[in-house]
Amino acid sequence: MKRQIPLIIIITLGFMFVAHSFIPHKISTEFFDWFQDWVKAISPFAVSLGIMSLFMVHGTKISRKVPNWQYSVVTLGGLIFTAVAGFVWGTQAGTPYMWLFENVQMPMSASMFALLAFYIASAAYKAFRARSAEATVLLIAAVIVMLGQVPLGAMISKWIPETSTWILNVPNLAAKRAIMIGVGLGMTATSLKILLGIERTYLGGGD
C-alpha cells in the first residue's frame, strides 16, 4: 500500500487534469486553481531535500576525513554564510547577501561558463580532425554563424552575415522543428507512462 496509494493519487489527479484541459468546466477550473495553491505550498519544502543531501554528502566527507575533505568545509561554510547573510540582512541591493552575489557567485559562475569557450574550441578541433563530410558541414555552418555575429564577418564579405541569417532561418529551423516534434512526442509518451503507472522510478526504492 505504500506504493499503491501514491500511484492511485497520481493516476486519478493526472487524468482529471487531462480531462480538465479538454473540458474546462467551472468546477474543474476552480479545483485546478485550488490544487495549484497546494502544489505551490508544497514546493518550497523540496529545497530542504537539496540542503539535506548537500549536508549529508559533505558532512560524511568531513567526518571520515576523506582526501580533499577541506573543500567540503568550504562548500558548507559558503552555503551557511550566504544563507545566513540573506536571512539576517535581507536580499535587497547593498546588503552583504547581494555583495556575495556580485563579488563571489556571479564572477565565479561567469568565469566557469567562460572557461567552456576554451574547451568548446578544443572540441571543434577534434571534430574537424574527424575529417568526415558531416563533421565538416557542422564546422562550416558553425564558423559562418560565428562570423555572422561579429563585425569581422561583414568586413570579410557581405555574404557572410546574409548566409548566417539564411542558415539560422532555413536549415536550422528545419532541424529545430523536427527535433521539437520528437521532443514533444517523447514528453507525451513519458507523461503517459507516468500517468498509467508504467514509469515508477520517481517513487524511489523500497516497499
Binding site: P6, F17, F22, F45, A46, M187, Y202
Partner: peptide, 19 residues
C-alpha cells in the same frame, strides 16, 4: 512519495500542452 505525487500530477495538464 506523497509530496512528490502531488507535484507530479500536474503532468496531466502538460500532456495536451506539449502535444
Amino acid at each position: 512519495r506523497y509530496p512528490i505525487v502531488f507535484g507530479m500530477s500536474i503532468i496531466g495538464m502538460s500532456i495536451p500542452m506539449s502535444i
